[in-house]
Design a protein around this nucleic acid. Structure first.
Length: 646
RNA sequence: GCGCCCGUAGCUCAGCUGGAUAGAGCGUCUGGCUACGAACCAGAAGGUCGGAAGUUCGAAUCUUUCCGGGCGCACCA
C-alpha cells in the first residue's frame, strides 16, 4: 500500500514538473531519516534550483502552492534548505490497509530463470554452497512475491574433474567396483564418505603427481564415452550425491524445478550446435600462431577493454572448455539454441511439487513442463567467477544476442570463509600464516570446511536444549519439530543478513546465536503476536471489523507512536520491491528484523488483553493481527518457518 | 603487472540512485518478569566513516591519488 502511494505521488509530481517547467526530472520520493519530518520527502527543489537559477526554498514554495491538495495527503511542509515534507492522511491510510483496492496483479508472461546451488556432485554440501542456495532461493521467493513467473534450475556438472577424482579414488585407492559403490551409496551418509575420499584422492595427487593426469584422463575419458565400469561408477556417484544435496537443501525449504545435467549437454551435442553458430557468425576464430595455435578462441575485445587477450573456447585437441559448454547452456536458457533436453520426473516433493531432470533419450509422453526459454536469466555464482561469466555474456553478444547478453545477470556474491577461531573449534589444523589471517578459505580438496548438514544438526541440537528448558511438557516429536524450525530460521537469516559483496567470515558462535539480529528473534515476535490473539480468543475478545471506521482509526493514530508502528508494518511490499530492484535479499532480512523489533516494542509497551478503553482495545487487536499477518508474509519471503511456540 | 571488491563504534555489519543530528546486533555498564512466557524491553558509554586532495548548496556515498586487505587474470571447472 505504501509502495503504491509512493509511486502514485511520484508520477503526479513528475508530471507536474514536466508541464510547469518543461523539465524531465527523475523525481525521488524518499523516506525521511526522521519520522518527525513526515512519511515522504521531496528533494527535487534542489535539482530544479540549479536549472532554474532560483533559490530551492522559493521553488519548493511554488511546488507546494501549485500542487494544491493531493489525495491521501494532509500536509506538505517546506523544511530546511528546500525539502518538501509530505504527511499522509492517517485514518484514510489505515482504512486502505484494511480494505485494499483489488489490485489485479496478473502474473507476468515473461519467465525469469534463476539458476542456483550447482554443487559439484562429488561430496557433501558445505556452508559456501549454503550461501549460494539460500541467496538464490530467497531471491526466487522475492521475485514470486512480486508477481514474477520464475523457473528454478540447478545445474549438475556430473562429468567434470571433481566427479572423476572421486571415481579414481574409489577405483585406485579403494579398489571398489560400480556394484560395490552402489551398495555404499545406499548408506545415508554417502556424501560424507565421498567428502573424505575426495580429500584423500587430492592428497594422493599431491604426493604422487605422476598419477594425477593419468587417473584423471582415464576416468574422464570413461565418463565421456559412457562405457565401462568407471563410467558406471561416475553415474552412481553423481546420481547418489545429487540426491544427498537435494535432501540437504530440502531441510532448508529449498527446492528446484529442473536439473539440467552436463552429461546431456554433451550427449545431445548442445555444444556442436552452439559451435556452428559461433563459427558462422565469426564470434570465434581458429588461432594460427602463438601459444594458442590450433585453438578456437574468442577475441578479448568482446569481454574486456584490452584486445591483446583472448579466451580459448575449444582446445587444440578439439575438446571444448567449460566456458564453451556454458555458452551453449546459456543459449538454451534463452531459447535461442534451437535444441532442447528430454526430461524425466526425478521425484515429487511432499507438497506435490515435481522435480525434473534432463535425459538424453526421448521419454514416453510424460507431460514434462516446458523448461528454458527465459526472458531474463540470473546465475547465482560466486564472485570469483565473474571473469568467466563475462565471457559467457560476451559469447551471446558476439552471436548477436545483445538483448539476451544484457539480461544475463551474474547474481554474484562473496565467498564464505572460516574464522581461525572456528577452525580451532572444529579441530582443523592451520598453518602459522593462516592463524594470523582474519579468515581462512574453505577448501573441498583439503576437506576443510563446515558441512551444511553438520551445521544444521548443531543448530537443532542447541535449539532443542532451549525448547526443552521451556516446554518440558511437550512431546519429543513436537519439541524436535519446533527446534528444527528455529534452526532453519537461524541458519537462513544468518546467510541473508550480510550484503552479497561482503565476505562472510564464518564464526560458529555467531551462527549459533538465537538472540539479537537473528532468525529466532523474528520468529519469537511472530509467536508472541499469535499468542496474544490466542489469549484474546480464549477470553472471548473478537475483532469487530465494523468498529474499524476511518474516524476511529484516525483517532487512535493521532498517537505518533501508533502511527510510526503502522508505517513500519505496512511496508512489506515496498521493502520486497526495493530489494528486488537492488538485487539484495539482505534488504528484506533487515526489514523483517526491524518489523520484529517494532513488534517487540509494541508488545512490551501495550497490553492488548488488559486494555480498559473499548475502542483502543479494538485498535490494539487489529494492530496485533496486522503485525502477525505481515510478519508471516515477510518470513515466507525469507523462507523462515514460524513455530507454534518457542 | 592488469582487472574487480573491501576499509564505518572494542567486535561483526547496515547506510537505498549524494540529502536534514552517521545506525543495528554482539560485547561492556544501569535498570525491568506475582508474565498477552525475559529467545524480550528501556537506558548509558563508545565513531577524525583508512589518509590526502577535488567536484557542490550538501560527500560515508561521486572523481583522483596514496596506504592497507581480499579475489580474479589456464588449452581446470
Amino acid at each position: 500500500m505504501f509502495h503504491q502511494i509512493q509511486s502514485r505521488l511520484q508520477e503526479e509530481v513528475s508530471g507536474h514538473i514536466q508541464t510547469r517547467y518543461g523539465l524531465d526530472l527523475a523525481v525521488v520520493l524518499e523516506e525521511p531519516s526522521d519520522a518527525k519530518f513526515g512519511e515522504l520527502a521531496l528533494t527535487v527543489a534542489f535539482a530544479l534550483a540549479k536549472q532554474l537559477k532560483k533559490a530551492p526554498r522559493v521553488i519548493a514554495q511554488e511546488l507546494v502552492d501549485d500542487l494544491g491538495t493531493l489525495p491521501g495527503v494532509v500536509a506538505m511542509e517546506i523544511a530546511g534548505a528546500g525539502y518538501i515534507n509530505i504527511r499522509l492522511d492517517r485514518g484514510a491510510y489505515a482504512a486502505s490497509l484494511i480494505a485494499p483496492p483489488a489490485a489485479a496483479t496478473a502474473a507476468a508472461a515473461d519467465k525469469v530463470i534463476v539458476e542456483h546451488t550447482n554443487i559439484n556432485p562429488n561430496k557433501a554440501a558445505h556452508i559456501g554452497h549454503l550461501r549460494n542456495s539460500v541467496l538464490g532461493d530467497t531471491f526466487v521467493r522475492m521475485l514470486r512475491a512480486s508477481g514474477q513467473t520464475v523457473e528454478v534450475q540447478n545445474y549438475i556438472d556430473n562429468t567434470g574433474v571433481q566427479v572423476s577424482d572421486v571415481v579414481a579414488g574409489f577405483h585406485h585407492l579403494e579398489h571398489k567396483t560400480a556394484a560395490d559403490v552402489t551398495e555404499l551409496a545406499k548408506g545415508d551418509r554417502f556424501d560424507y564418505l565421498c567428502w573424505d575420499l575426495y580429500a584423500r584422492t587430492s592428497q594422493h595427487f599431491k604426493d604422487h603427481p605422476e598419477d594425477e593426469k593419468a587417473w584423471q584422463h582415464e576416468a574422464l575419458h570413461a565418463i565421456e564415452t559412457g562405457e565401462g565400469d568407471l563410467a558406471e561408477l561416475g553415474h552412481v556417484v553423481a546420481d547418489a550425491i545429487v540426491l544427498c544435496h537435494l535432501r540437504t537443501m530440502r531441510r532448508l525449504g529449498i527446492i528446484y524445478d529442473v536439473l539440467p545435467r552436463e552429461s546431456e549437454i554433451l550427449h545431445l551435442q548442445f555444444w556442436a550446435t552452439a559451435f556452428e553458430q559461433l563459427k558462422e557468425r565469426q564470434a570465434i576464430y581458429l588461432e594460427t600462431e602463438g601459444n594458442k595455435k590450433g585453438c578456437w578462441v574468442m577475441a578479448g575485445s568482446y569481454y574486456s577493454d584490452s584486445d591483446d587477450d583472448s579466451k580459448v573456447i575449444v582446445r587444440s585437441n578439439g575438446i571444448v572448455t567449460y566456458v564453451g559448454k556454458d555458452i551453449a547452456y546459456q543459449m538454451w536458457k534463452f531459447g535461442v539454441l534451437g535444441k532442447d533436453f528430454h526430461y524425466r520426473k526425478l521425484l515429487t516433493e511432499a507438497d506435490g511439487h515435481e522435480v525434473w531432470v534432463s535425459t538424453a533419450e526421448p521419454q514416453p509422453a510424460n507431460n514434462a513442463p516446458k523448461f528454458g526459454g527465459g526472458a531474463t536469466v540470473y546465475n547465482v555464482i560466486d564472485t570469483r567467477q565473474s571473469y568467466l561469466q563475462d565471457v559467457v555474456a560476451a559469447g551471446l553478444r558476439a552471436l548477436g544476442y545483445t538483448g539476451q547478453a544484457e539480461r544475463s545477470i551474474h547474481f554474484n556474491y562473496e565467498m564464505v570463509a572460516l574464522t581461525p577461531r572456528t577452525c580451532v573449534e572444529l579441530g582443523i589444523e592451520l598453518s602459522d600464516e593462516d592463524k594470523s589471517k582474519a579468515h581462512v578459505q574453505v577448501s573441498g580438496r583439503k576437506g576443510l570446511g563446515v558441512k551444511a548438514n553438520d551445521l544444521l544438526d548443531k543448530l537443532i541440537e542447541k535449539a532443542l536444549g532451549e525448547v526443552e528448558s521451556r516446554h518440558a511438557d511437550a512431546t519429543v516429536e513436537e519439541r524436535r519439530a519446533v527446534a528444527t524450525q528455529i534452526a532453519i530460521g537461524a541458519l537462513r537469516y544468518f546467510m541473508l543478513k550480510f550484503t552479497r559483496n561482503t565476505v562472510i567470515a564464518f564464526d560458529l558462535g555467531e551462527a549459533l546465536a538465537f538472540t539479537g539480529e537473528t532468525g529466532p528473534y523474528l520468529q519469537y515476535a511472530a509467536v508472541r503476536a499469535k499468542k496474544i490473539l490466542h489469549k484474546l480468543a480464549e477470553q472471548g475478545d473478537q475483532l469487530d471489523c465494523a468498529a474499524l471506521t476511518p474516524e476511529m482509526l484516525a483517532r487512535q493514530l493521532a498517537s505518533d507512536d501508533f502511527w510510526h508502528l503502522l508505517m513500519r508494518i505496512s511496508k512489506v511490499d515496498s521493502a520486497v520491491a526495493k530489494a528486488v530492484t537492488a538485487g539484495e535479499p539482505s534488504h528484506v532480512a533487515r526489514y523483517a528484523f526491524q518489523l520484529a523489533q517494532a513488534f517487540s516494542g509494541f508488545y512490551d509497551k501495550y497490553s492488548v488483553k488488559d486494555e480498559a478503553d473499548a475502542e483502543r482495545k479494538q485498535f490494539l487487536i487489529w494492530m496485533t493481527g496486522y503485525f502477525r499477518q505481515q510478519l508471516e508474509r515477510v518470513a515466507a519471503v525469507l523462507g523462515i518457518p514460524l513455530p507454534q511456540y518457542m
